[in-house]
Design a protein around this nucleic acid. Structure first.
Lengths: 137, 137
DNA sequence: TATTAAATAGGAATTATTACGATTATGCAA
DNA sequence: TTGCATAATCGTAATAATTCCTATTTAATA
């Protein structure tokens, strides 16, 4: 997904256009890696010095619900990135230092032995963590 | 791992025996599923009404470092369980309602394409979430 | 039994996130 | 273009999980 698609989707769904929403999405589109809510707030402070937590968290939540952002959680906080263009279901190798990702189309669920007949499976998480080349230097 | 092994390991490593540590481990050994720090505290309040956060969190941290407890994180909080007897590396299917688990010896890393030559891989997480039979009723 | 270092209590501090009433701004229709 | 209804935002308080800190207590052992 790119910025234009994200803004169009918001419009189609009847959400109002605001400068803050555009800037949030712009930041995510420019960086294309996992950012925390605080990361996003910090990058917006220049243009919107009086930005509220509420605005950022509520908009993030909206974007996640619409599929504009992908969400995960590690190091004790939520992380968000613009949904990958990778078609369909995928996983990530994630740099825990800068949030940069590599997409992995391979999903372990396809080869999971069906040991869980007693479980109603609602989801799964497969992530590989490490540090990227740039962060290693 | 069982209660006796855990207590022995603590002793071998030079940690002091305390009733609180034994009870924490007893709770984990009896339940054998993922519990939050708060879950553990609540179960101890009867015997130790003046139990401190610090005690629980510090002991959990000690136990995790010694490999007595396995740690994960979902629903915004840390979860802990007595290390499985399953030999070696494994993953879990986890009931997000009660913390009950099923061990899965299969690890997706063994079949991961090596797309990460630019990454120094430090870890990974593979968990399947759902609700168990008992919680579904 | 006395000593010493580890463990704990009690509560304050931190951090991430959510909640909420008051205010402001967007989209739309007259 | 203006006014209206409602969504979005602000400012801040509330929550919730976790960590930190100091005085006190306790387990191990000499």
């Amino acid at each position: 997904m790119n910025l234009e698609q994200a803004l169009q989707l918001l419009k189609d769904k009847g959400y109002k256009y605001t400068g803050k929403r555009e800037e949030m999405l712009k930041i995510c589109a420019d960086e294309r890696r996992y950012l925390s809510a605080r990361d996003i707030m910090e990058r917006m402070r220049g243009n919107y010095p009086s930005l509220s937590f509420d605005t950022v968290y509520r908009n993030i939540s909206t974007f996640v619900n619409l599929g504009i952002l992908e969400e995960t959680e590690f190091d004790g906080e939520g992380k968000f990135r613009l949904s990958c263009s990778t078609t369909g279901h995928h996983h990530h190798i994630i740099c825990t230092s800068c949030g940069k990702t590599i997409s992995v189309p391979h999903c372990p669920m396809t080869v999971m032995p069906n040991v869980a007949e007693d479980f109603v499976v609602t989801g799964h998480k497969f992530e590989v963590y490490g540090t990227c080349k740039a962060c290693n230097e």
